[in-house]
């Protein structure tokens, strides 16, 4: 049994009621007692509909949000107990690719600046000179299927799929072990989705990454993930091996979701 790289223990998040001019707004329970354990080297899928708490969970893992209750451990270390310097060092090892490649790249920065920024921020660990950083950026770009000729260009010159590749290159720049993928393909059209997914598979093989893959696209999850968890209204509904869940869902919610999948599957000649 491989060791867990990420443990989420009984995490709850309540967005507090706010006092406004006309009284108080209601509390929102975004996460309720969620526990997940992600093993090193696996692809873990988190499936849930809009508003089910997926994004809150990713923000909590990145420590951009503090859970109301529960702990999040990265390699056994509680994120909430880390000093700011330790937290910064940890940010090099946990990275994220966002859903919308059009919004997640700063339009005023060149691709070189975007991809080298994590190296610059974590230069105390990486210790690269300016030239080495540029070389590494070029290397990362070719790793994600772009080239060094793209270094001096700006995000608006790229298509959605290419931008997502730049996002992946940026996420890989600091040498992370865990990559959070927050619906990385849902803003792309279908043919480009397949390319990006294949790229992600390929990168996992080459770099030994652990993926925490968030999606509402069941087909994609089934294709990419070893294990899956289903989340509904902030609560964990079901968790298990991907095949088990897709072949024999236990909870009603899982049955409903899988029943609603468009049928292109397992009639033998489908692929």
């Amino acid at each position: 049994m491989p060791e867990p790289i990420l443990q989420i223990e009984n995490v709850s998040k309540i967005y507090g009621a706010r006092r406004t001019l006309f009284g108080r707004t209601a509390e929102v329970q975004a996460l309720n007692n969620v526990s997940i354990s992600v093993q090193k080297g696996e692809s873990f899928g988190l499936v849930g509909e809009s508003g089910s708490g997926k994004t809150t969970l990713t923000r909590s893992i990145l420590h951009l949000e503090t859970p109301t209750a529960g702990r999040i451990l990265f390699e056994g270390q509680d994120l909430a107990l880390l000093s700011s310097a330790e937290l910064r060092r940890l940010r090099a090892r946990v990275q994220i690719v966002f859903q919308d490649p059009y919004a997640s790249l700063n339009p005023r920065m060149s691709v070189r600046d975007i991809v080298t920024e994590p190296m610059l921020v974590h230069n105390d660990i990486l210790n690269l000179s300016r030239v080495q950083r540029t070389d590494r950026a070029a290397e990362l770009l070719s790793l994600v299927g772009l080239g060094p000729q793209h270094l001096s260009r700006f995000p608006h010159e790229f298509s959605g799929g290419q931008r997502q590749r730049i996002c992946i290159a940026r996420a890989l720049a600091s040498g992370p072990e865990l990559l959070l993928l927050d619906e990385p393909t849902s803003a792309l059209d279908v043919s480009v989705q397949a390319q990006v997914l294949n790229l992600l598979c390929d990168l996992q093989d080459r770099l030994g990454l652990t993926y925490f893959f968030i999606s509402h696209d069941l087909a994609v999850v089934r294709y990419l993930c070893d294990r899956v968890a289903l989340i509904y209204r902030g609560e964990l509904v079901e968790e298990g091996e991907t095949d088990e869940i897709f072949d024999a869902p236990k909870s009603d919610y899982a049955k409903m979701l899988i029943g609603a999948m468009p049928e292109v599957k397992v009639r033998g000649n489908a692929a």
Binding site: L87, R88, A92, F98, S104, N106, E117, V121
Partner: peptide
Amino acid sequence: EVYVTAARAIGAN
């Protein structure tokens, strides 16, 4: 903006 969140996730000050 998302790119600001991305910068914070990178660990930028």
